[in-house]
Simulated scan of single mutants.
Amino acid sequence: MSNYVPIFAHRGASAYAFENSIEALNEALVLQADGVEIDIQCSKDNILFVFHDLNLKRLADINKNIVDCTAEELKGYRLGRNFLRRFSKRTMPTFEEVISWALEHRMPINVELKESLVGQPTSIIEVLKIIQLPDGSHFSSFHNELLQLVKKHRPEFETALIITKKFNWEELHLYSHIDTIHAHKKYYKTRFLKACENANKNMRFYGITGEENYIEDPHPIVTGWITDYPDRLAKKQNRQ
């Protein structure tokens, strides 16, 4: 049997259901995911919503940034792809609603903090003061300053930096507030795995499809796969 690594369903099981929706989260449960990845953006009035894009055009056909809308406005927008949104009753879930879902199902969440929070740090600080999450949950972000806030206010939470091609791997040891590196699967290479191992940090990889040959025998520092296809990975890892 292969070494089992926890599977996080990207935006819920987004290959099978509408991304970042309660339906996608429920589908992740059905498809044997061990956790879910969600995206957090902030409204004009500092309410946190589960939504990937800064701009609403792609999924709501509204050419406005989420930070320019109140929570009441955001709750009134119907979400969907292309013309299908005309028939949709789906609206944007709040972070609070998704936390309640996660606690009910004891489902760990990978909370990705998005760009709208950079200019409104108060919103995440206030939530951090009171938030409770299922065991195995963690915060991730491309924005290092947001992860510094998480570690400052809730040091017990795991923090994961999502790296880009500009990242200086030689400075990895300087990121004392970072526990884990999240990287695209193209970084699954000896050089980067060794760098994290030497810096005493774990790794999770996203963009995983279930076709990768290293899934069945992963490097010891790999603590998660992030995928649109949790069912494929569960099968690949011989999960019963």
Rank of each mutant, 00 (worst) to 15 (best):
M1H: 14
M1A: 10
S2Y: 10
V5F: 00
I7T: 06
F8C: 06
R11C: 01
A17P: 03
A17H: 07
E19V: 10
E19P: 13
N20M: 06
S21K: 12
I22V: 15
A24Y: 07
N26E: 14
D34L: 05
D39N: 12
D45V: 14
F51K: 11
F51A: 10
D53A: 01
D53C: 00
L54T: 15
L56G: 05
R58T: 15
R58V: 12
R58G: 01
D61A: 09
N63L: 10
N65K: 15
V67Y: 10
C69A: 06
A71L: 06
E72W: 12
K75F: 10
K75E: 09
Y77S: 02
R81W: 13
R85D: 00
R85N: 10
R85P: 01
R86L: 15
F87C: 06
R90L: 14
T91P: 01
M92N: 09
M92F: 01
T94Q: 02
E96T: 15
H105A: 02
H105I: 08
R106T: 14
M107R: 15
P108E: 06
I109M: 14
V111F: 00
E112H: 11
L113I: 08
E115A: 14
E115I: 14
S116F: 00
V118H: 04
G119M: 09
P121G: 12
I125Q: 08
L128C: 03
L128S: 04
K129R: 13
Q132T: 11
L133H: 06
D135F: 10
S141V: 12
S141W: 05
F142M: 11
L147Q: 04
L149A: 11
K151G: 04
K151P: 03
K152E: 14
H153Y: 15
F157C: 02
T159D: 04
I163G: 03
K166H: 13
E170V: 15
E170I: 15
L174I: 10
H177N: 12
D179M: 07
H182M: 08
H182W: 06
A183H: 07
A183M: 03
T190K: 13
L193W: 07
A195H: 07
C196G: 05
C196Q: 12
E197W: 11
A199S: 12
N200V: 09
K201Y: 08
N202F: 05
M203F: 05
M203I: 14
M203H: 08
R204F: 00
Y206P: 03
G207A: 04
T209S: 11
Y214H: 12
I215F: 02
H219S: 11
T223L: 00
G224L: 00
I226H: 03
T227M: 00
Y229S: 03
D231A: 13
A234L: 03
N238G: 13
